[in-house]
């Protein structure tokens, strides 16, 4: 009876559907039960509200307008936030690329060639690329690019200062395709001594010279190299530490 009362008697009471006996019983219960009293009051108000369809329709539309406008702003905020993140990422990305490129790539390495012994430009204080000149290799000198140079052949694989320097890669004789990088990795026990990587062609002409200050690896980019045999030597204090060769196919 109790459960039945609370389920539909409230409704029936407010709709005046209870008979006299039920009504008296219900009102007695209301006197003793404040929660029931509240429910009856809320139900009566609710009935009036539910019957007012125009009001409900208007409220729905006002809520929709509010949601639409604040929702639009929310979307705009999200869009702006994403756009800002993308712009910042791009800026940092470009900055990082430029910086890492400056640190690891010898700018213009393949472009330059010069005669050995020619005075080179040294930008002191940093790890630098030193360009021995802006002279292109004369065409007649590249005719037999794959012929070995006897004086250098005997030096390939040899070196000095083995107590201070240990070459890990590359092998002293490798063949690669144009554009492939050659990774030079070494251990140097005295990093204060300036180290240079010198690339020479098979005529003994210095193609490039790279300063390797306080690093233990370097990627030689062969993009722009002509096919042929090249020799490389790592130099410390004007002395050859190790020599090798590579063939660009």
């Amino acid at each position: 009876m109790e459960a039945e009362m609370s389920d539909d008697w409230i409704d029936r009471y407010n709709n005046d559907e209870l008979d006299e006996y039920e009504k008296a019983l219900f009102e007695n219960k209301m006197l003793a039960d404040p929660l029931l009293r509240s429910e009856v009051y809320i139900d009566a108000c609710l009935n009036r509200f539910l019957m007012d369809f125009e009001l409900q329709d208007l409220m729905k539309k006002i809520r929709a307008a509010s949601r639409k406008n604040s929702g639009g702003k929310w979307l705009l905020d999200i869009f702006l936030m994403i756009a800002s993140i993308l712009v910042l990422s791009s800026i940092f990305g470009v900055f990082y690329l430029v910086r890492s490129s400056a640190e690891t790539t010898p700018v213009g390495l393949p472009k330059y060639a010069g005669q050995e012994g020619q005075k080179v430009q040294v930008d002191s204080g940093k790890r630098n690329v030193i360009f021995p000149g802006d002279q292109r290799i004369p065409k007649d000198l590249t005719k037999n690019n794959f012929e070995s140079l006897a004086e250098y052949e005997v030096l390939v694989g040899t070196g000095s200062r083995s107590d201070q320097f240990k070459l890990i890669s590359p092998n002293v004789n490798v063949s690669i395709h144009i554009g492939t990088e050659i990774k030079f990795v070494w251990q140097s026990y005295n990093k204060q001594v300036p180290l240079y990587l010198v690339i020479l062609n098979n005529h003994g002409i210095t193609v490039s010279k790279v300063a390797l200050n306080q690093v233990s690896s370097f990627n030689l980019k062969t993009k722009g190299f002509k096919s042929g045999l090249y020799y490389w030597k790592m130099m410390a204090e004007e002395k050859m530490v190790v020599m090798g060769k590579f063939t660009v196919l």
Binding site: S6, D7, D8, I10, D11, D33, P34, L35, L36, R37, S38, E39, V40, Y41, I42, D43, C45, L46
Partner: peptide
């Protein structure tokens, strides 16, 4: 009846409802 009851209960449990029922009953019984 059950839908109406559900709605009534939701309203009564809403904290904003306090101000409307304070003169009509108590919220202690929940």
């Amino acid at each position: 009846y059950s839908c109406k009851k559900m709605l009534r209960k939701k309203i009564i449990k809403d904290p904003e409802c306090d101000q409307f029922i304070k003169h009509h009953g108590s919220r202690n019984v929940r």
